[in-house]
Design a protein around this nucleic acid. Structure first.
Lengths: 353, 353
DNA sequence: ATGGCTGTTGTAATCGATTACATTCCGGCT
DNA sequence: AGCCGGAATGTAATCGATTACAACAGCCAT
């Protein structure tokens, strides 16, 4: 009847039936030999394996997924694909997913054209068996989707209030480490370049910075808290604000390495020297941090490990195909990975005022 | 019979039959209303659309792909997922692919565990309708796969000899621009930090650099050509080699920005100043280049555009489901995108010897 | 020897969407 | 009136793998 593909079969692409014929067994036996070898006799198993090798059989995943009512893939929602901070995390996820035979689909949540619709699709949809979300500021329709949403794990960022599983780092503690480092060097006037205000990471790091200052009895002048948005460009803008101040903080904690680099870059253009004139601490420990001039003192996040952990958690959730809460009781729970202060050349004792 | 999923249907996930029932038409009409609206009457079409909205129907892609003998996705083979140079390209690909309703699968060809097997799978396999390869050094079994391989487009790197379609930049010309810039500033001793020797980009850029030097009648001292591998770390090693020279080139063209940054970073540690003591030119124009200290003079590659172009080319290839050569005659052909010299602070006239 | 048991294999239903072919309907033409 | 052609729709086969159930063989115990 329907043969628009006269060549397709002829050209190759053997199916399970071809293998069965070649091995002299039924398709059921082939299927079992490949996915549950214990169920078939050694003789049949060998025959099937041989037939597979001879025919060059590759399983058709669409058929398998249809039958199993699954999709064979996980979706990763990332705010900015081109941001190197995320690519290391992606790499971690990819490794685990590929070991588990799962495809990793990457979707940029901040893509211009019709992003909203597309994201909603991924959420509500049957297009993924699991979801890893790296973006804590998804559109509102996030949870409106429907009850049969795939398991979700948040990584790095998360949505407050939702009791989703997540893999994060101790952002508050990282900020405390950063500020205490500056204090330990003798700084008394400390500033902070913040991320976007609605971002959960911004809030946690800000809280940590505030706490550390308060604990040391330091005055947290509101003019020393610069609004920015994690990008290089916003770090540059913060540097301009810093330059315009009457009384300048001698130590600056930036909520991202990108901002710290932008900040230092702009200061350099204006002849201000780091760390001689001002000390700078970043957050993330991106690749370039170690090799920036000066090398950036920063808070290291285990980015690759974050991705791996999130993927492992998601797999556990997917395997125990129970409801979220049940799986949780079963063992999976949110993980907070440690951060680490990496001292490099961008910090020193404050200049003698 | 087989009902391991008693809840699945009940829980929701309407199928095309449910929609048909709700709309009072047959499944054939639903299918046509959704994918070939011109074939059904306005009345039926509206009824179907209404039923879709009511039931919250989402098409099952596995079923569609099975029937259409396709996979609904394209695979991107990238050498190092965590390398920011590639993530911008990925972002370009992702945008085009998502517009076309295709999933983008990302696979890291340099992943530790069993990478070879996995890659071969992607190639020979029915796991993708198309393939974009960003790695010019794939394992040898690349073309041995079989005749029913999906369409392939190379981007950035490519395999010499294979007459595959590709999207590249004019690497040779970029190198000429870089070296001529140094020559124009008055440099007479020019060095080159190279990429890995088996890499096609290394070879093209090296050729361009050599040609430009020869054209200006400059001596290309072999000791001024440093072996490296595009990474930050290898740029640092190159800097050490440079420091160890008796007679040092006053201008250095690095085959990647990452190496240029590593190079400058290491020189800085040894008190050598850029551009006062030595001028440095990079290649790529990665994000940090503009904000490095000093800002890096470099050759800009349109990374996002490279990704978009490759994706568009692949789509054209996939649509015209003809053989590679036929599609080529039909219009698609390899594209070479232009590069651009971006002059910044890392280059200046040579010091008075 | 008969019944029960385990281990292995085959038959055929099933997942959900697409589409070839058949059917129906209706207006226009001879 | 009868026939033709085109538009709209329905019926059912199909894609390829999985697996419930049935069938059967071999073995032990009663």
């Amino acid at each position: 009847m329907d043969d628009r593909f006269p060549e397709a079969r002829a050209a190759g692409n053997p199916n399970i039936g071809d293998v069965a014929r070649a091995a002299g067994v039924s398709t059921a036996t082939v299927s079992r030999a490949l996915s549950q070898p214990d169920l078939v006799s050694a003789k049949a198993r060998d025959a099937v394996l041989k037939a597979v090798a001879e025919t060059g059989y590759k399983m058709n995943l669409a058929a398998r997924n249809l039958r199993l009512r699954q999709t064979g893939g996980i979706v990763v929602l990332v705010p900015h694909l081109s941001n190197p901070f995320f690519s290391a995390i992606l790499s971690g996820i990819a490794g685990i997913a590929s070991q588990a035979g799962l495809n990793m689909l990457v979707a940029d949540t901040r893509e211009a054209a019709g992003a909203d619709r597309r994201i909603a699709g991924y959420l509500h949809n049957n297009s993924a068996d699991g979801l890893i979300v790296l973006d804590g500021n998804l559109p509102d329709n996030f949870d409106g989707g429907g009850r049969n949403r795939p398991p979700v794990v948040f990584a790095c960022e998360w949505v407050e209030g939702h009791d989703q599983l997540s893999v994060t780092v101790d952002n508050r503690h990282g900020a405390v480490l950063a500020v205490n480092h500056l204090i330990g060097l003798g700084h008394r006037r400390i500033g902070h370049v913040m991320g976007p205000p609605d971002n959960i990471l911004t809030q946690r790091r800000l809280a940590g910075a505030r706490d550390a200052m308060a604990a040391a009895g330091l005055n947290a002048d509101p003019r020393w808290f610069f609004n920015a948005n994690f990008t290089l460009a916003s770090g540059i803008a913060a540097a301009r604000s810093w330059l315009a101040l009457d009384e300048r903080p001698s130590g600056i904690f930036c909520s991202s390495d990108a901002m710290a680099c932008g900040f230092m870059s702009e200061l350099n253009r204006h002849g201000v020297r780091v760390p001689d004139d001002v000390s700078v601490v970043g957050f993330d420990d991106i690749d370039i941090a170690e090799h920036f001039i000066p090398a950036l003192t920063t808070i290291r996040q285990p980015r690759h490990r974050i991705g791996e952990t999130a993927a492992e958690m998601l797999l556990a959730l997917m395997r125990g195909d129970a409801t979220k809460s049940a799986a949780r009781d079963g063992g999976e729970k949110s993980t907070v990975l440690p951060v680490e202060l990496i001292v490099r050349g961008s910090t020193a004792a404050p200049p003698i005022a």
